[in-house]
Design a protein around this nucleic acid. Structure first.
Length: 493
RNA sequence: GGUGUCGUGGCCGAGUGGCUUAGGCAAUGGUCUGCAAAACCAUGUACAGCGGUUCGAAUCCGCUCGACACCUCCA
């Protein structure tokens, strides 16, 4: 029996601004599209927050037993730098600065992106399509929009006619809560450089100027597609005209997602997405993390400790844990203190998971495992409330420690449920890794075991100087000895 | 200027009309220890301000102050 039949998931839908019961279009199957990165530079931690959250969404849906097709694109065609005719795309600009081919830039940062995801233990999406791999489909979609009368060509470029779309029943502005009548008066003028009929109109195809390297042949000009188009094309190609979940960062809500809806709806006549999900921004020192302002930290810099923000290096799982201790819809402020606190909590959790393997069952359970388990599911079912979910995991931690200290007991049946459930939640759903375990090995176990033995002999001889030396010097290299009633154990940081 | 989000204890962050007002970190006391650490037990401090609705509001409404984001490429 699939877990999802017993667990009714609720998702906060950005479109309706309400939590709604999640009902997939096709029972048992979920189609999810998430806007991926533009690969013109390294992904920073803010980007990672979004992908990490949707990684957990993906993991949880799989855990519930859904068959999920998760599509996350790579934007490698470059976006317009601005709305002026002379706009060159970002990837081409970077290439010129670095005197390399645009596709070389794309390749370098795509590899970097994948390396980061790998280090942070992301599950790969089902399909990771690229914009440049779908130029033909994008041209077809533009033709279709022109045929339906909602796009016009000017000087080799094609624009979507937002006002006409809305006059004829369209709902441009529905996602972002903008009224087009207001927007007309409030959009900043762009020096009259534009070919557009109205400033709200957005480009579907842009004619490339002479210096523009990334270009494709089209019925209108040698040029390149507008940046909103690729997501409409790739989502409908792989997930259908209508699909379940579309995710992305809050900053993409307008205009990117708004434009996607207009494009897709023009072609299909239906709302493309049932549940829109937006992750909020990650702040650094209370300011938005963004490459353009220099206020950012790279995922690799956290792992190596080579940065000006953190006091030391932190593992990928600590960052993951930190992210999951906050709700995805809220702004999250990244700081050294917060990360230090998360690291300790994470270690506490991992040590309980480790000692869970060692505890013995008893005759009765002083811990209601099944109620606990359901509380965990309830939290996740409530719009992926990972902070509450984690607070329940600490409920299990407390009980595991009590049982471990012989102050509580658990039946064999409950113990097996607890093991199975906690492991699934921690490793499968949250995607955490046990850092201590991966660093450990039989040889280290043997060496430290020998030192523990020598130290215990010293302690028997009341040679405190020697026993403390062993303890302190091991601690200095990151191995902590723990004296318990059952003898001495150790853990590594 | 327009659109939107938000202001919770020393810090990070849940909750969203009454119920035990999460959880993590830090702090204090205790158990344990040769002393510690770890673990466990116990404890304190809070809902930006003002006004309103209500039997009752941190939670709803209004205003004020403050923060942030989007409106231009951005996860």
């Amino acid at each position: 029996m699939k877990i999802y039949t017993k667990n009714q998931l609720k998702i906060y839908n950005s479109l309706t601004k309400k939590k709604e019961l999640f009902t997939p279009i096709e029972k048992g199957y979920v189609g999810m599209y998430v806007c991926g990165p533009t690969v013109y530079s390294n992904v920073h931690l803010g980007n990672v927050r979004t992908f990490m959250f949707f990684d957990v969404v993906y993991r949880y849906l799989l855990h519930l037993g859904y068959k999920v097709r998760y599509v996350r694109n790579i934007t490698d065609a470059g976006h317009l730098e601005n709305d002026a005719d002379e706009g060159e795309d970002r990837i081409a600009k970077k290439a010129r600065l670095e005197k390399i081919e645009p596709m070389e830039v794309v390749q370098r940062y795509t590899v970097d992106f994948h390396n980061v995801l790998d280090k942070y233990n992301f599950l790969p999406p089902s399909i990771e399509p690229t914009a440049t791999g779908h130029i033909v489909e994008q041209i077809e979609m533009i033709k279709e929009i022109i045929d339906k009368g909602f796009a016009y060509e000017v000087n080799g470029s094609v624009y979507f006619d937002v006002l006409k779309y809305n006059k004829e029943g369209g709902d441009y502005g529905i996602l972002s809560g903008r009224k087009m009548e207001d927007a007309i008066h409030n959009t900043r003028a762009l020096d009259g450089q534009s070919d557009k009929k109205n400033p709200q109109d957005f480009a579907l195809w842009k004619k490339a100027d002479k210096r523009h390297i990334m270009r494709w042949t089209s019925p209108w000009s040698d040029g390149f597609p507008g940046w909103h188009l690729e997501c409409s094309v790739m989502s409908s190609k792989y997930l259908g005209e209508q699909f379940d979940i579309h995710g992305g960062g809050l900053d993409l809500k307008f205009p990117h997602h708004e434009c996607e809806i207009a494009q897709s709806k023009t072609c299909s006549g239906v709302n493309p997405v049932n549940y829109w999900m937006h992750t909020n921004m990650l702040l650094l020192n209370s300011q938005k993390m963004a490459k353009s302002t220099g206020n950012y930290i790279l995922p690799d810099e956290i792992l190596t400790g080579e940065n000006k923000i953190l006091s030391k290096a932190f593992s990928a799982s600590v960052v993951r844990f930190f992210n999951m201790q906050a709700l995805y819809r809220g702004i999250l402020d990244f700081s050294n203190d917060a990360l230090v606190a998360s690291e300790k909590g994470y270690h506490k959790l991992m040590e309980a998971v480790a000692s869970l393997g060692k505890i013995e069952a008893g005759k009765i359970s002083t811990f209601d495992v099944n109620t606990w388990k359901q509380k965990c599911y309830d939290a996740m079912n409530d719009d992926f409330n990972t902070p509450v979910f984690i607070s329940h995991l600490f409920d299990a931690v407390k009980n595991i420690n009590l049982i471990h200290d012989k102050k509580a007991t658990i039946t064999p049946e409950d113990l097996s449920t607890l093991k199975e459930t906690l492991n699934a939640f921690v490793f499968d759903v949250l995607g955490l890794l046990d850092d201590t375990k991966t660093q450990s090995s039989d040889k280290i176990d043997g060496v430290v075991g020998l030192l523990i033995k020598l130290r215990n002999q010293a302690r028997e001889n009341k040679d405190w100087a020697l026993s403390d030396q062993i303890r302190d010097e091991l601690l200095a290299i990151g191995i902590q000895l723990k004296d318990g009633k059952e003898g001495t154990t150790f853990s590594m940081n």
